[in-house]
Amino acid sequence: MSKPKLALYWAASCGGCEIAVVRLYAKILDVADFFDIVFWPCIMDFKYKDVEALPDKSIDLCLFNGAIRNSEQEHMAHLLREKSKVLVAYGTCAYMGGIPGLANVANREAIFERVYHETPSTVNADSVRPQVRYQVPEGELTLPVFYDTVRTLAQVVPVEYFVPGCPPVKEQTEAVLQAVMEGRLPPPGSVVGASDKTVCDDCIRIKEEKRVSSFYRPYEIIPDPSRCLLEQGIICAGPATRGGCGAPCLSVNMPCRGCYGPPPNVVDQGGKLLSALASIIDSQDPDEIERVADAIPDLLGICYLFGLPASLLRRVRQDRKAFPAGVTGELAREQGDVAVMTQRAP
């Protein structure tokens, strides 16, 4: 009997989720033993055509990490969806957009302008920009379309399971793979590899009633290592973050940043965190409250560090007048379908 097929792919990601799987240490051998790894471009020299050659729904488990930033990643999301029985958004980038999702404070025009023009060390007198298609004597070169907006995997294709974490901790990755191998997965649509409580449940610090008169950045005070950081004025996203990670950050005196995403009943993680932070301010005076709010330089970054694409608003408002569509016409999407970079054989 043939072994179940396993695929892993990385879209807009840092590679940390690949490491997270490798970090199973000896257990990776059990995984390699159980599964037939049919696609893992980070580790081995797989090609897209290997995936295209597979029959539909033949991949039993696909761990897809990384967000969808460009047309190539979108294409692979669709392709792997076609070919996979179970598609898992593995890691926070695939689940919620992750750190790449922060790019939703900008758009293509703004990013390209910055990267290819404004940065002090860039020399680009001719304003050369990457282009989707470019003719060279040898033929045509293509690049993926760089989208204005980063999306999560589930915003592109239907997804069976979500494994949060930046990256998912070793114990949870192990648990998820073990569950797959033993055929013990919950109903599709579930978040797996995490608890149904918040990080507070994992965190062993002592928690009291919270009344804060000021918020501090972690370097500004020396916190009491045994007490809740939020109580001491250090913004910790723990109460608004799904648990199951074991609160490793808290154990080294760093506040939780929210990488496991929202707790089960929460629709918008940033909105809830914002509400909680504001609610614990110990003041009725509007001026005092303004002062406390003003002292936080980047509320968006705090609330949506990992989940901007998954939030209700998804991205910062694009002012089309500032970023007009026709300026970099070469980068405009092709009519109808997606202009795509493939390694199709000619």
């Binding site: 918040t198 009344r211 109460p239």
Partner: peptide
């Protein structure tokens, strides 16, 4: 309170003007 979801952060407790919220330390 949804007991399965509450993780004992205690953010709610001082907010109630009627002191209707208490904390069960044993069950957190």
């Amino acid at each position: 309170v949804d007991e399965a979801a509450c993780s004992g952060c205690k953010i709610c407790i001082p907010l109630c003007p009627y002191s209707a919220i208490t904390f069960n330390e044993a069950e957190k």
